[in-house]
Design a binder for these strands. Structure first.
Lengths: 343, 343
DNA sequence: CACCGGCACGAGAGCGCTCTCACGAGGGGA
DNA sequence: TCCCCTCGTGAGAGCGCTCTCGTGCCGGTG
């Protein structure tokens, strides 16, 4: 019989406005929470939106606002790291959640090689995203330099290497955490406290070591004797622990700079016949929810709330995008000691 | 008020056309590789694009073509799985790479809970993406049902549960792989071949078991005696191997349905004092590049090329999006045995 | 009573692109 | 010679949204 104009098509703002008996402009005002709308109009539009199941057309909005509604999440990290370390999966998950909470699309960029870097730069320069969250902890990483010449707001996780001038970042108090962990071991009466460190080309690993060092009052020579790099991997942690055991047979406590390495360290201690915590007290770092509670014995660990960190990064970036005043370029989140059975 | 975000005035197609001395329509034709363009016009436009550093405005294009240029990658999987199993990181990486190769944005959706599912459904229904790649292997997963009522092209990895009618999927020949592995063990002269399976609420685990079963000619009772579920986790693999060792002391070979579990099984065998491959031959599954070559001894494994699978999924989905004729709704990729030291 | 400022709202102009359509030039068949 | 295709091209109409302006109405002020 008669033609149905928009029966199958997705409703547009025009349809909503018509149904609500207002103009498109007013409907738009309601959707964008403009204050200059009468309560009646507001209610009518809201009702029409619900009734029609209206969803704003993202492309049309992006076209006029010059905002894509998407941000890039960039990991610059050698490939094995990303796959070994559950920390990364956790970061990705946190980012996915934080961003979908605020209705922003996440575009994941994994940079393993120079070609990846070039591709990422092209993408970021292409105007596909409004901003970026960057994870580039390693010394010598090109990403910060690349990002610097892009007209794109960026928030870093932790301190990248190179000049910090003008950078926005959200870090954890790694040094404070190192102190916390070590002082806890001291308060337990431990006398010979060693440390398995992360790779020292990352500030976070460096800071944790600095925390341990200041708490035990270690000299340069002590550092060489009492610490070993475990590379932030499980196997590395095991190897480093074994090395320390060989070098410092009378050790009675160890601060391990990540839970994953701590899991490896526990393996090494077990194989060496040392009881935890009776013979050797162990404190990890991260309080990773998939690791710390599940080791045997459960791991005492310095908590850094990663999902909170990512949430802060997102909030910070959104504020940057809205050109709101920024309280501080750099945020440092606190770390807390979570006690379990290992120390 | 109206401050331009990146006021360095990105060139538009109009600018390109002006510089090339043609109309916007012709410039657009060149960019979209239309055949109806003279060589001279083509060259002039191409030169202008390069000179101006022109990048098409994605939003404007999306608005008129009604294509977002983005697709969703959805993982429906309990949370620990995603973080334990390097297979997932590998899948995510493969997807990220395959999609950026074809210049499509990837939106990652992780579904762990009913709320996540609702959120994902809303997102997918919201027209933010042109299609979706789905990883939902578990029995009882709601995702396929949700996807079915969405007007969105979807390609699955492996066979989801529930009716397959109308679904597009790219699977591996898991059963064939199981046969391959087991026949290899038989050809080695092994007589007592057991299997550590994956969770049998996944078709892939089921199929691998079926392959083993048909190769050894196992009865129902044999299955109960000679196989054990390792849950696709490393610890699970270790536990399952230990259980089999206790139940079938004279076993001389094992087919383990994933490399991660196989790594655990090797631990169990080592702890039990069995030499690999002398006492017990071990074949894994996945040929995971981060695991199989690095176990001791290196793992003989059935290769399933995950990145190839994802690439096929992407190709298939793009074909769906272009409404090109599809050869087959379901693709089954071959599996190959990769020999190393463990069998 | 005239005036003015504030407020809610509508008209309409784009944002940058694709795609339809119409048009002129050139070539081949009648 | 004329007609009709074909082919390359340009003009222009939107896609669905935001946002600036202008307008009419209200209450408060001089």
């Amino acid at each position: 019989m008669s033609v149905q104009p928009h029966s199958s098509a997705r409703p547009t703002l025009e349809d909503v406005a018509a149904k609500a008996g207002v103009s498109r402009a007013t409907a738009s005002r309601v959707l964008n929470a403009s204050p200059r709308v009468s309560p009646e109009a507001h209610e009518a539009v809201t009702a029409a939106v619900v009734e029609l199941g209206y969803q704003p057309n993202h492309a049309a909005r992006a076209l006029v606002t010059r905002r894509t509604g998407a941000i890039a999440v960039v990991f610059s990290e050698p490939e094995p790291k990303i796959f070994d370390d559950p920390h990364f999966a956790w970061l990705i998950r946190s980012a996915a959640r934080s961003l979908s909470d605020v209705d922003v699309q996440m575009v994941l960029l994994l940079v393993h090689s120079p070609e990846d870097m070039a591709r990422a730069e092209r993408f970021l320069a292409g105007g596909h995203v409004d901003g970026a969250l960057m994870f580039a902890p390693h010394k010598g990483d090109q990403l910060p330099a690349v990002a610097r010449r892009l007209p794109l707001p960026v928030v870093y996780a932790g301190r990248p290497w190179g000049p910090l001038r003008g950078l926005h970042l959200v870090d954890h108090d790694n040094e404070g955490g190192g102190v916390l962990a070590t002082e806890h071991l001291i308060s337990l009466g431990r006398k010979r406290i060693v440390s398995v460190t992360g790779p020292l080309d990352e500030h976070s690993a460096m800071d944790r070591l600095t925390g341990w060092r200041s708490a035990v009052g270690a000299s340069e020579a002590d550092v060489a004797l009492l610490t070993e790099d475990g590379g932030f991997s499980r196997d590395g942690g095991k190897r480093a622990m074994a090395a320390l055991l060989a070098r410092v047979p009378d050790l009675d406590a160890v601060f391990v700079a990540s839970d994953l390495m701590a899991a490896g360290a526990l393996d090494a201690l077990r194989e060496a016949g040392r009881r935890v915590p009776e013979d050797v007290a162990v404190v990890g770092f991260d309080d990773h929810p998939m690791i710390a509670p599940h080791t045997s014995p459960p791991l005492t660990s310095v908590q850094q709330d990663t999902s909170n960190q990512v949430k802060h990064m997102v909030t910070h970036l959104l504020r940057l995008l809205r050109e709101e005043p920024i309280k501080a370029r750099r945020e440092v989140l606190p770390t807390v000691l979570v006690r379990r059975a290992s120390a």
